[in-house]
Nucleic acid binder design. Structure first.
Length: 525
DNA sequence: CGAATTTGACCAGCGC
DNA sequence: GCGCTGGTCAAATTCG
């Protein structure tokens, strides 16, 4: 009977509803006299050679394939109906006194019935496992959102209390205070949408430095983490807070420094060194300037700035061409980006309708994934691409993950030169720009249609994309897009998943690489 | 202590 | 010419 337990245990283990399966096994066992369960399990021995072992003397350990049928590893599962199985149930029915042939037929019918039942169980097992996975994911997401919500609530309460406790005389004595308060309000609004600062900041004990440091919680950040820098930039704003507020926020940060939630950090695969930061006109968020440091003298630079309209959108503008090979891991994502852009090239009207129908950023802050719309703001005309990196983006709550950069080495030729991918600085390359504008009106080549369809389907199922696109277009055109649904809790991580959409292949062979620029819009949820 | 980041200063382009 | 804005530099600061 020890073997019996062993089998039952494994069956239960491989079934999401182990209790249910065990129940069925017990029931079947009762129907088959006192024969050990082992022999019933052996019905489904995977190897035809085991047919000879399907006897009452067969030891279950002799047929490991029995377990393989219903292991969690679906790849090793073998269809039961594909092999003739000697059920051995004649032993259980031998006492019936039926003729041998009739008994065999009866057993065959039973066997078919059992096989069908097992298949059903198998299918149910698979469904239950998928359900369990989904539930687990949802649980993680909800847990993360709960942490964020609690943290935000506490933070806001403490901030209100801090504001109340401050004396009006203090406000009058230091003219910087009022100004800083305004800044704080702006920062607060930003935090309301992204929770960037509130989620994972931790205090620093260094003298005179009241800025919380993400790195202490998130671990060492790669130098190419643009959003990290932006986070720190946002925290730099907070460095201008009054000491009272700083003290409060510091306390708050200390209280939540041990929050298990970690933001997913996305890099674009290149190494960037920040060389400047400026406050841009019309945007309360600072613009950060980065230089590619993957190779000496690489002229590529990028600017990262949060969208003024939608703080969850990161605007990353690339300029120049890399003079070095880019990480190979980025090629897959680059292809995806190219395909996605091809979709957009296929028809802007459908894209627009999707944006309008998406309800703005309603989903933007609710989804655990990020997608990316890409615009070019540096060109005299708005251009749009997108990045479907969401499949590679780490889920919130999972260990810090990194996606890889996507140089457009694999960019389809029909995309090269199109303004969506290839916008040049007007003041620098006026002639080339005219060519670009001419290409702008050209439809995509038919060869891209299948890819377009594929990507279109993927995009259609991604509300994040439409939300990002809505914010991007809103930023560019200044149109108001309905954001009434944008009340969800955002998962705090910014995707500076900037994608260099420009590649040397976009320049005719032999010609010098001209400075090029492209702006990407990435959602940060 | 080295590397990366921050940040004020400086410079250039552009419009008035 | 002046002011505004964006981009870059480089010393100071921070961090591991």
């Amino acid at each position: 009977m020890e073997n019996q337990h062993e089998h039952r245990h494994e069956l239960s283990f491989t079934t999401s509803s182990g209790e249910f399966l065990s129940h069925n096994l017990d029931r079947r066992n009762h129907n088959s006299t006192d024969r050990p369960i082992i022999k019933e399990v052996d019905f489904f021995s995977a190897s035809p050679n085991n047919k000879s072992h399907l006897t009452a003397n067969h030891h279950p350990r002799d047929s490991h394939d029995d377990h393989r049928i219903i292991t969690n590893d679906g790849s090793s599962s073998t269809p039961l109906s594909d092999r003739p199985v000697n059920t051995g149930l004649n032993l259980t029915c031998a006492s019936s006194g039926m003729p041998r042939s009739a008994s065999d037929e009866n057993l065959d019918a039973k066997l078919i019935s059992f096989q069908g039942e097992l298949r059903m169980l198998h299918e149910e097992n698979r469904k239950l496992k998928s359900m369990l996975d989904q539930i687990t994911r949802s649980y993680s997401q909800l847990q993360a959102q709960l942490f964020i919500a609690l943290h935000k609530q506490k933070f806001q309460i403490q901030k209100v209390e801090a504001n109340r406790s401050r004396s009006g005389q203090e406000l009058l004595m230091d003219p910087r205070v009022s100004t800083n308060l305004n800044v704080n309000e702006v920062v607060s609004v930003s935090e309301e949408k992204t929770e960037e600062v509130s989620v994972s900041v931790s205090p620093t004990s260094k003298k005179g430095d009241h800025r919380p440091h993400l790195g202490k919680v998130l671990g060492k950040q790669p130098s190419n983490s643009a959003e990290h820098a932006l986070d720190r930039s946002s925290q730099s704003w907070e460095s201008s807070k009054s000491p009272t507020l700083l003290q409060d926020s510091k306390t708050q940060d200390q209280q939540h420094a041990d929050i298990p939630f970690r933001k997913a950090r996305i890099s674009d695969g290149c190494q960037w060194r920040k060389y400047g930061q400026k406050m841009a006109k019309g945007n309360p968020c600072p613009r950060a300037y980065y230089r590619c440091t993957m190779a000496v003298g690489c002229p590529v630079r990028k600017q990262v700035q949060r969208c003024a309209e939608e703080k969850t959108v990161l605007i990353t503008t690339y300029e120049g061409n890399h003079n070095h090979p880019l990480p190979p891991a980025a090629s897959a994502m680059a292809n995806t980006t190219s395909a996605a852009a091809a979709m957009l090239l296929s028809g802007s009207s459908s894209t627009t309708s999707k944006v309008e129908g998406s309800g703005g950023g309603g989903y933007l802050s609710c989804m655990p994934y990020a997608s990316m719309a890409t615009l070019s703001a540096s060109a005299p005309f708005p251009t749009i691409t997108l990045d479907l990196t969401q499949s590679q983006i780490q889920r919130v709550g999972s260990p810090a993950g990194v996606t890889f950069p996507l140089p457009l080495h694999g960019c389809p030729q029909q995309l090269i030169g199109h303004p969506v991918f290839f916008s040049q600085k007007p003041q620098a390359q006026a002639v080339n720009q005219i060519q670009v504008v001419g290409q702008r009106l050209q439809p995509p080549s038919p060869s891209s249609s299948s890819m377009v369809d594929t990507v279109s389907a993927a995009i259609a199922s991604d509300p994040n994309f439409t939300a990002a696109l809505a914010a991007a277009i809103s930023s560019i055109f200044g149109t108001s897009i309905n954001n009434s649904n944008n009340g969800g809790i955002g998962i705090a991580h910014a995707n500076a998943n900037a994608i260099p959409l420009i590649n040397a292949t976009s320049v005719s062979p032999g010609s010098p690489q001209l400075p090029q620029s492209c702006t990407t819009f990435s959602t940060t949820n």
